[in-house]
Write a protein that binds this DNA or RNA. Sequence first.
DNA 1: TAGATTGTTAATCGATTAACAATC
DNA 2: TAGATTGTTAATCGATTAACAATC
Lengths: 243, 243
Amino acid sequence: MSPSRPNGLSRQPRNVVSRGIPEATVARLPVYLRALVSLAERGATTVSSEELAAAAGVTSAKLRKDLSHLGSYGTRGVGYEVEYLVYQISRELGLSQDWRVAIVGIGNLGHALANYGGFASRGFRVVALLDAGEVVGEKVAGLTVASVDDLEHVVKEQEVSIAVIATPGAAAQPLCDRLVAAGITSILNFAPVVLQVPEGVKVRKVDLSTELQILAFHEQRKSAAVLGIDADVVAQAFVEAAQ
Amino acid sequence: MSPSRPNGLSRQPRNVVSRGIPEATVARLPVYLRALVSLAERGATTVSSEELAAAAGVTSAKLRKDLSHLGSYGTRGVGYEVEYLVYQISRELGLSQDWRVAIVGIGNLGHALANYGGFASRGFRVVALLDAGEVVGEKVAGLTVASVDDLEHVVKEQEVSIAVIATPGAAAQPLCDRLVAAGITSILNFAPVVLQVPEGVKVRKVDLSTELQILAFHEQRKSAAVLGIDADVVAQAFVEAAQ
DNA sequence: TAGATTGTTAATCGATTAACAATC
DNA sequence: TAGATTGTTAATCGATTAACAATC
């Protein structure tokens, strides 16, 4: 895309940010972490790649490859020390510090998110709730819902670093723009729209309908296969039967 | 993993189910569909790969490659007819039919999902709500919450084909086992555990903490980069400065 | 015909997998 | 030492990207 840059100071930021840990690995680290914490609660002190992989739903080869990106934290012939691995993955994910989260849009989903207990134990503190409707001023999950009119002020005052958007689709992009202008660079989006953001802002999207549609695709394929509708398979079966 | 199978009838089901459309493409089709519907609502009748790609947040090359897996539905020099493409993608995703969905676990999140209006318009009908607590017997989103004791009966009676699990972690696996035994092969899991299922059952997982942890990882890397902490980069800069 | 844009090819990139040497 | 298991290598697989011939 860009021409070669001999000057070290103007290199692509990509190398700075990711420093070698593949995106696919990063996405699996939270799953390993959860499995490890669960193992620790059941009293395990050591775990092999085979056991941990089974608990996390991946292959042991993939697990070892993933962990090798963090360093050599296992012992050959023995396995991994659970507590130590928990510490190393937590550190890598940046969970040694608390992250301050704002939820924008306190409808059904926003309520559920605000009341979700799983955040606090994983290093995330919900410090602000924002909405544009009647719910402003009410107490939800111990916090008073603020007006989105004060978004910029709240973000600054509460030192928010991660925003969760749980508004209707139409409201999401304008609010996203304001969040970005207020300095937010990490957004979790539940609104059913594709947010347009400048480079350097990271958006992750959770889309309930999309997930169901992907399931429907596979479910449909199963039905078709059972009924013998799939033309490719029928043709292939004929070819193989004739040999 | 398994030895070669010369007999066509005992081949791996993988080929039957996917028939050539890559998983990565399937996961993007719902995004394209949503962008197309939005364009249609704004009166567009035709769209180029460049425009649609921008709306969907991908590159035009990727979009054209994805659509080419479905067939040749565009016109060179012109673009794609919006309505026709909506139809083709919907058909491919299996949205011509209505899918009957059960939600298991009617807590904060289950409530929000039951009340979410976006499902119905996209081919999904919530036909059953199940819980084990006090909410059983209450009306939620127009449906009476049934007891999980009757899970098998409800799944059969209501002809459920997709189940959504929104229970606490500890309850998820046993309920998943019962759903699978009752014939369910598509599950959307919001519980913070990795579900173990037999082959042929498709699970998709939505994990709020995981998403935040991935954002935290990148956010942390940004801070480190700004502060000049990244050792690799510092070392590299020295090497380059010395040349 | 000239301009626009698709559908496809080929190159590149990144992720997965299997196997095994290293080593506890 | 013998058995177990990691960390790494190399091969394979799948996804992305750029470029452009085909064609409206």
